[in-house]
Simulated scan of single mutants.
Amino acid sequence: MTEPLRGADASTVWAAMESGDPLPGTGGFAGEVDGRLVRDVLGREPLYLDAASDGREWSFDPTDLTDPELLDAGTVIEPDDARGEVWSLPNPTTETDHGTAVDAVRDAVLTSVREPSPDGLAVAFSGGVDSAAVAAGVPEAPCYVAGFADAESHDVDAAREAADAMDRDLRVVAFDHDDIERAVPEIVRATGRSNAMDVGIALPLYFVAERAAADGFDRLAVGQGADELFGGYRKVVDPAEDHRVDADTVRGATREVVRSLPDQLPRDVLTLRAAGVEPVAPLLHDRVVDAALRLPADLLATDEERKIALRRAVADVVPDDVRGAEKKAVQYGTYAARELDRLARQAGYKRRMDDHVGQYIDALVAGEA
């Protein structure tokens, strides 16, 4: 453990604890403040406790611990080990004026994407509105996209078109089956996750980060959080008819998806760090979260369009064709999930078997595949 607190200074966290303010103007934080362990409301920085320890062993890295347990987002553990939720996701008043709502998103997003220093920074770039908005804030930074080597993947195609439209330096990271077989055990060890979905999402992130690190960059800007905050998932469009969410309104379903971030983000953060870079996620800054939570349903998602407010907000910095582009999930757009499935079947794990890809991943980690 190199530092006791990440993501914010102690005075900011203290003020947030005293006031109960869940969005005190940071990009997330976790660590120890005067004997108290803390993790911010969206869990943007992971913190783990050692369930096997009688003491108070903790770390930002689960591989440091014997039996790591992720601390719940919004939680503070007192010096006497009393644990409680100090911060919960706010529910601000909905902004009904569309112009005002989009202006707030514009100010929050543009401020956040322009905030990171360009020194040592690269951008994970898939050609969608999220990564394009992030890239627009740091025009000097090179952009990276991953895709399977033997096919021009959707993400590579989209990234090439977007990079041309934005006049950006794009570096394509082509990965093959050997790369997948090498990276899977490293990702599983770093994240503690071996299910097919998590590994499929992590693979392209790992390859992009690994290449950026090899090129001399120590930070990678990512568009994480935009789909959750701005209504990017199909399941929030008609939630009353979608079994994947419990809510029956667009805003309710969007909040439900936002609450999934504390479990998702450690996978991405730990994957990027394992590959040698520090993640930078400007679209997860408190100011962006606050503006997104105030959006009315018809600026989030409709049958015709998703991430409506975000697309309107970046009109001055992202070309129209890029703003309107539809993107596949990263594991599908890069063919990472497809090729992981192919490798599993080639190794004898057929689709008729229960969780055939998960079984293959476990065998890879054990050195048996």
Results as ranks from 00 to 15, higher is better:
F175E: 04
F175T: 08
D176P: 02
D176E: 02
D179E: 13
E181G: 11
E181Y: 03
R182I: 00
R182T: 13
A183V: 14
V184N: 13
V184Y: 12
E186A: 15
R189M: 04
R189F: 00
A190I: 07
T191D: 07
R193E: 15
A196I: 05
M197G: 08
D198W: 13
V199Y: 08
V199F: 11
G200H: 12
L203S: 06
R211N: 08
R211C: 01
A212V: 05
D215G: 06
D215W: 07
F217G: 02
D218I: 01
R219F: 11
R219V: 05
L220Q: 03
L220R: 04
G223S: 13
A226P: 00
D227G: 09
D227C: 08
L229F: 10
F230I: 00
F230A: 09
F230W: 04
F230Y: 14
V236H: 00
V236P: 04
V236N: 00
V237F: 11
D238F: 00
H243C: 01
H243K: 11
V250W: 00
V250Q: 02
R251G: 11
G252L: 07
G252M: 08
T254R: 14
T254C: 07
T254I: 03
E256H: 06
E256I: 06
V258I: 14
S260T: 15
L261Q: 14
P266D: 05
R267C: 03
V269N: 01
V269S: 04
L272C: 13
V277W: 03
P279L: 10
V280I: 15
V280S: 04
P282N: 10
P282R: 12
P282I: 11
L283V: 05
L283P: 06
L283F: 09
L284P: 08
L284H: 11
L284T: 10
V289G: 01
V289P: 02
A292K: 10
R294C: 09
L295C: 11
L300S: 07
E304D: 15
K307Y: 12
I308F: 07
I308K: 06
L310F: 15
L310R: 10
L310P: 04
